[in-house]
Design a protein around this nucleic acid. Structure first.
Lengths: 355, 355
DNA sequence: CATCTCTGCCCAATCGTTTTGCTTTGAGGA
DNA sequence: TCCTCAAAGCAAAACGATTGGGCAGAGATG
């Protein structure tokens, strides 16, 4: 099996020229003159034999492997991650490059192993992704090779990164609820002190105060980022006095818990309670009933942006070190059916929708 | 940046020997005699310089790249897929190999592009995975290289494959419900005619008849494999006469719809209705309330099994073509809280639980 | 007719390894 | 003193490409 692949030498023989010439015509080397007739002869020979250059040999010679690595703590184990891979892969493939994927879990040694293995294979660059938006310290080995961060920022200068725009995510969530007419709101935030938590809360609060909502009409509580956490938090919010008419959830999974709490309390969504999620996690946001209005996390685009940047840096001649670009990607709000005007009754605030 | 990596030549210089000798000692080439003292001198030099062989050069020479490819239609875009990647990667890394991931979507040309790109990089073998268990025709290019199928079977002989054991999945689901005492059951199957649909139904039915359940006490309906489909199907099942007390769902997403239908009809799970899912799709099975009892799909293990097989075949000397092994992996049932004995009342059948 | 200038092509070095033979050295036997 | 042989190490040829520098031959030029 595995019959030997056809090499440049065979093409040369078939076309009756030297391998040099074959290389010249197949690569369209500028400044090299070869007779048009010979050109087509070579091309035809190559086509006839089904020749495709051996990338290993090519890479060895040119010191460019057309291969990038994607390493991350949970790059393969969460639903988001796949999208990152996909984004990166799509731009890679558009440049005839291929992507190594290394999932490190949270074992520092595995990460190190993986990166070494990639470097030994002369990857042109590495995408370093984290599952949750956070700040990281770069593994030292990465200094040797162009690197771009995904879903993470870092203090080392000169390293581009891309993260979700948490603040405007919070703003957008607020806007959706405000636009529907809600004036008493809550945010179920993550317990962990991470950029996503800070940012979303900041954006959310900012828009509410800008809209003139009084401080004691907005409650921010924290909970575990899962359905159980959301359930607990929502029960507490909804059974207290002056319950919110709209709840913004740190994640779709949290929203899942809110749905349950609402159902138990006899509150219909969206008639009695509006809910906005975060992530647009397929299977949840779409699967809930009614469909969950939520803010999308643009994992595909982060992967693609990062890959673009990476190739940019790989191709830039050594000296040209432009300042490292960074990006905060603003996710669109995905409108489904979980937001509606608040129930008309017993609202102390001015009421606007007098049909 | 990207300071040149240290090569074998530098190690040789540092140790004061030829590169031949360095190679001999570092690879422990059997039958080659080199003085113990020289050995340690070389080893120390290598360590001091932090030498790691260039895999590209190595591969070029040895025709073995220690690299495998994982290509699949949705290898990166579904929650399952990640587990497959992970399983494959883990066994690969344990052999100092690395995994290329190529997601092809359903575009035949992209698939072809991707595979070519992998072959040009001399991958030692390829794992070919499909998202849904089905039968496939192998891309012709794969004939050139060892291949193992994941989640798919194929008619080409000599190609190992691994798939979920659908039949025993159906059996296990039946057993769970039977053991709880249910005698009137339903299966919401997939509309598509795929192995998963056939197999699960076969297993499910087999156990029921073996348990003496009468044919008109088991209903099998089909629905789209999503919450909406499950909802519709469940409503119909539960509002008809002689409604089932236990429902086996083709997938956890379908079960999600069943939960909603039950809630609407005032049926509590598991008191009034028992539900069994399939997939153990994190975030759903666990996130539903009460937690969904379901059959796990062992994606990680499929990835790992396939990778093992692949390396086995790669390492087997050319002539040794053992018959291609195949495997059906039986998933464990994950017990949560959605199954309980049927309600005691108004059962026409013999009643057993007379507390 | 000698020289110059293109044109069209090829030689050989190189990338960093592995691997197949040598070659060198010194000890031991005749 | 010479020969043989094992031990220890090295030179050089791959692997399959790219690339800088030639080199032959045909026209053009003086």
């Amino acid at each position: 099996m595995t019959q030997r692949r056809v090499t440049i030498k065979q093409v040369a023989a078939e076309a009756g020229v030297s391998i040099t010439t074959v290389s010249h015509v197949l690569n369209d080397v500028p400044g090299k003159r070869v007779h048009p007739e010979t050109r087509t002869r070579v091309r035809e020979a190559a086509a006839r034999l089904g020749y495709a250059p051996n990338v290993l040999a090519q890479s060895l010679r040119t010191q460019r492997s057309n291969t990038i690595g994607l390493v991350g703590d949970e790059i393969a184990t969460t639903p988001f991650a796949g999208k990152i891979i996909l984004g990166a892969q799509d731009v890679a493939l558009s440049r005839d490059a291929v992507v190594f994927v290394v999932n490190t879990g949270y074992q520092r040694d595995l990460e190190s192993r993986g990166i070494d293995e990639l470097l030994r294979r002369q990857v042109d660059g590495i995408l370093y992704a984290t599952m949750y938006h956070r700040q990281v310290e770069l593994p030292p080995q990465l200094a040797a090779v162009p690197t771009v961060l995904i879903n993470a920022s870092c203090t080392t200068s000169g390293v581009p990164w891309v993260v979700p725009d948490e603040v405007s995510g919070g703003e957008d969530a607020a806007d959706v609820l405000l636009a529907a007419g809600h004036r008493r709101l809550a945010f179920i935030n993550d317990v962990d002190e991470i950029p996503a938590a800070f940012g979303r809360e900041e954006g959310f609060r900012r828009r509410l105060t800008a809209a003139g909502i009084r401080d004691d009409d907005v409650r921010v509580v924290t909970a575990e980022t899962d359905p159980a956490g959301g359930y607990e938090a929502a029960r507490e919010l909804l059974t207290g006095d002056k319950p919110p008419t709209g709840i913004f959830c740190f994640s779709d999974r949290v929203a899942m818990g809110v749905y349950r709490a609402a159902a138990e309390l006899g509150l219909r969504i969206p008639d009695d309670l509006s809910v906005v999620g975060f992530d647009n996690q397929e299977f949840i946001a779409e699967g809930l009933h009614p469909g969950l209005t939520t803010i999308e996390l643009r994992h595909y685009d982060m992967g693609a942006w990062a890959a673009e940047q990476l190739f940019e840096r790989i191709e830039a001649p050594a000296g040209t070190r432009a300042a490292a670009p960074t990006a905060r990607l603003r996710g669109p709000v995905i409108h489904r059916a979980s937001v509606a005007p608040p129930p008309a009754a017993h609202e102390p605030q001015r009421r606007r929708n007098l049909a």
